[in-house]
Design a protein around this nucleic acid. Structure first.
Length: 220
DNA sequence: GCAAAGATTTGCT
DNA sequence: GCAAATCTTTGCC
């Protein structure tokens, strides 16, 4: 089922409750990778000192200032990509960081994507380090394949090339889908955002992280 | 131009 | 619990 752009066009905290439980799909040929979004974080407006938008519009965060439904993808710590879903109307910079996804389809492809990423980087590694990584990935449970924002992008092969892509377009190779049969309300939990120690209060403690309590794919 | 930091993940102490 | 890995973006000179 198509994910309605209207669910992202308004209040970001409201949108978070819609995005939680939705499906993220990467089209492949012939197989696709699909998972349920089980953890998100909201970054809202120029005032939010934890948000990339707080210093205004730049080349990197440009799509945050654009229309809702676009993918905002950036590189953190020089090695991990993070996927955000842009919310709120144009010129109102806000987004939801996709922190964790529970694999539903194509977990084998996600595992392979994680492995290929390690192999691509292995040129500068010792041979036993690569071997250890291979062994670790072999025994990693499916539920941990995308259990973190950097891991979501590794498992779904998301890079800066996907920045700006329309996630609400039903023909997009990377897109959102609604799962009407799934009700997240009973297990939804909220808390402070993670990894924003640089931000002062009250932003540091804003309960803008949402997750499905008890789900094995939630980060940490 | 250059220096510093970062919406992370992993492994070791 | 702490530090390393790794490189783009940003801010300041």
């Amino acid at each position: 089922v198509r994910f309605p752009r209207t669910a992202l066009a308004g209040d970001t905290l409201q949108a978070a409750t819609q995005l939680l439980g939705a499906l993220l799909t990467r089209i492949g040929d012939p197989a696709a990778r699909t998972g349920r979004i089980v953890e998100v974080e909201a970054y809202i407006g120029r005032d939010d000192l934890a948000s990339h938008a707080h210093r205004g519009r730049t080349a990197r965060n440009d799509v945050m200032f654009g229309p809702p439904g676009a993918a905002y993808v950036y590189l953190v710590y020089g090695m991990y990509h993070c996927l955000n879903v842009v919310t709120e109307p144009e010129a109102s910079p806000a987004a939801l960081l996709v922190r964790a996804v529970e694999p539903l389809q194509g977990a084998d492809l996600m595992r392979r994507a994680r492995l290929e990423r390690a192999e691509a980087r292995a040129a500068r590694w010792s041979s036993d380090r690569l071997e250890r990584e291979r062994a670790r990935l072999r025994t990693l449970p499916d539920s941990r394949l995308a259990a973190g924002p950097g891991l979501v992008c590794a498992a779904f092969s998301i890079t800066r090339a996907d920045d700006g892509r329309d996630l609400c377009d039903a023909t997009s190779p990377l897109r959102l889908e609604l799962d009407p049969a799934h009700d997240v309300a009973p297990s939804m939990a909220t808390g402070a955002r993670i990894g924003i120690g640089y931000a002062p209060e009250p932003w540091l403690s804003r309960p803008w992280r949402f997750w499905l309590a008890g789900n094995p794919a939630v980060s940490r």
